[in-house]
Design a binder for these strands. Structure first.
Length: 427
RNA sequence: GUGGCUAUAGUGUAAUGGCAGCACAGGACCCUGUGAAGGUCUUAGUACGGGUUCAAAUCCCGUUAGUCACCCCA
């Protein structure tokens, strides 16, 4: 391949015509479900103040420390390409006075996000996410509704063998307690832990719990479980969430080692995972949870809320694996073939008439030979072809050719739309 | 950020140190106003830079890009 001077930046790609059907299908599906459950769409800017993410996602997290695209405006503002959607939506909630709307406020979003990471399967530097947020109520019902909608959407997209991994990481107080207990437990086991975990036990100790290193797993399996340290409130909250899930028959797995990479989560956290035949642990398609303390970081006011986000490219990958049919090919109703400059000019007008009649009409004006035009129509699988040449243009007539039978019909040009409609109806 | 693998025409592939080939796609024609088959012709390639060799797509080094895994995450 000759070296191209310009190509997409690392980890970013063109979404080509053959993939558009997947994005289209996903967008239509999520819109359908969110409409039903009473959510409104929100779009926030691609760029936000860097501080918004530093404060909400958390200073110690990878996202903030090394994955954000940063830029300075000419005016000197520090902005970041958004790496996630929850903080911007929360910001919009406060900025636009949604505090005074009937609570909770239910929002959904869809759009591109950016993280500077090494790309690999199902991971890109620019990727699409859709997600939802319910802001202003702490009822466990809303945690469940979030999971339910997510589950329904993925199910509608024909994702198979889904399982919800769920856990509670408590609130600030009981989690704080648990962190101390865990630190005490790990203290004299340092040598059995991998290097990463030795680091993690200082910076973000909960993350030791989901290390994949077998040696660490062994240590962790003996570790105290957060479940036993949750306060009454958190414990009851989780219990109710699970009861709802049972009621709805959503398959879930309580995983006391599930923690999440963003600082703002409290109580419920979950991921949706697809179990493949090899039984390997899969990259999560989706994650979410409750974040009752995020409001405090953004606006100084704690507002209970929960939400979820889904990686669109990961879903598409699964859809392709499952060979989900997304083809939505709408054949043009008719093909217009023209011969000669006079007919070509008339043809432009005829195309407009079909557009006004809301009918799709294809053409191949870059070819002048009738033969090639018919070959094209054939290739496109279009059954009816209108042929106009100089003779027809002068006589104000047009030929309708049936490509299957080869029969041709001469009609008046004024009636062409009507005649085609009639022809199609007869099929 | 660390490690593994890969790079031949638009796409998919062959050539294991000795003439860069095939298929599909594209274009022209056989047929100047009538498609589906068939045929003829044609466009277009060894990512980049260096080294070894009489000889390199092939072996070595570097670069770039892609990909996969770790880390982390959707």
């Amino acid at each position: 391949m000759a070296k191209l001077k310009f190509q997409t930046p690392t980890g970013m790609h063109d979404i080509l015509p053959e993939d558009q059907a997947y994005y289209q299908r996903i967008f239509e599906t999520i819109k359908k479900f969110f409409d039903f459950y009473g959510y409104s769409r929100i779009e926030t800017p691609i760029l936000e103040d860097v501080e918004l993410f530093n404060r909400s996602v958390g200073e110690g997290t990878d996202i903030v420390e090394k994955e954000m695209y940063l830029l300075k405006t000419r005016g000197g503002d520090s902005l970041a390409l958004r790496p996630e959607g929850t903080a911007p939506v929360m910001r919009a909630y406060f900025q636009n006075g949604m505090v005074s709307l009937p609570q909770p406020v239910k929002l959904w979003y869809y759009g591109p996000f950016f993280r500077y990471e090494r790309p690999q399967a199902g991971r890109y530097r620019q990727f699409y996410q859709f997600g939802s947020e319910i802001i202003g109520d702490e009822d466990p019902f809303f945690d469940v509704q979030t999971i339910l909608i997510l589950y329904n959407i993925l199910d509608d997209l024909k994702i198979k063998n889904m399982i919800v991994r769920i856990n509670s990481i408590g609130d600030e107080e009981c989690r704080g307690e648990y962190k101390k207990v865990l630190a005490r437990f790990l203290k004299n086991k340092k040598n059995s832990l991998c290097k990463d975990c030795q680091n993690r036990s200082k910076t973000n100790i909960l993350r030791v719990l989901d290390c994949k290193n077998p040696k660490c797993r062994e240590v962790i399996s003996q570790a105290p479980q957060i479940m036993d340290y949750l306060c009454e409130g958190c414990k009851n909250h989780l219990k109710e969430v699970l009861e709802y899930l049972d009621e709805l028959k959503i398959p879930y797995m309580l995983d006391s080692f599930l923690v999440r990479g963003l600082d703002y989560y409290t109580r419920t956290v979950f991921e949706i995972e697809v179990q493949d035949s090899e039984g390997g642990r899969q990259e999560a398609l989706s994650g979410g949870g409750r974040y009752d303390i995020l409001g405090k970081a953004i606006a100084g006011e704690a507002i209970p809320a929960c939400g979820m986000a889904v990686g669109v490219e990961r879903v598409i990958q699964k859809m392709k694996d499952n060979e989900v049919d997304v083809s939505n090919k709408k054949h043009a109703h008719v093909f217009l073939a023209q011969i000669g400059p006079m007919a070509k000019k008339r043809g432009v007008v005829i195309i407009e008439e079909f557009r006004k009649a809301n009918m799709k009409i294809a053409e191949c004006f870059n070819k002048d030979s009738l033969k090639l035009q018919l070959a094209k129509a054939n290739k496109m699988g279009i059954k009816n072809v209108i042929i106009i040449g100089q003779k027809e243009t002068i006589q104000n007539t047009a030929i309708i050719r049936n490509m299957e039978t080869g029969k041709q019909l001469e009609v008046s040009q004024e009636d062409i739309v009507k005649e085609i409609k009639k022809t199609i109806k007869e099929d």
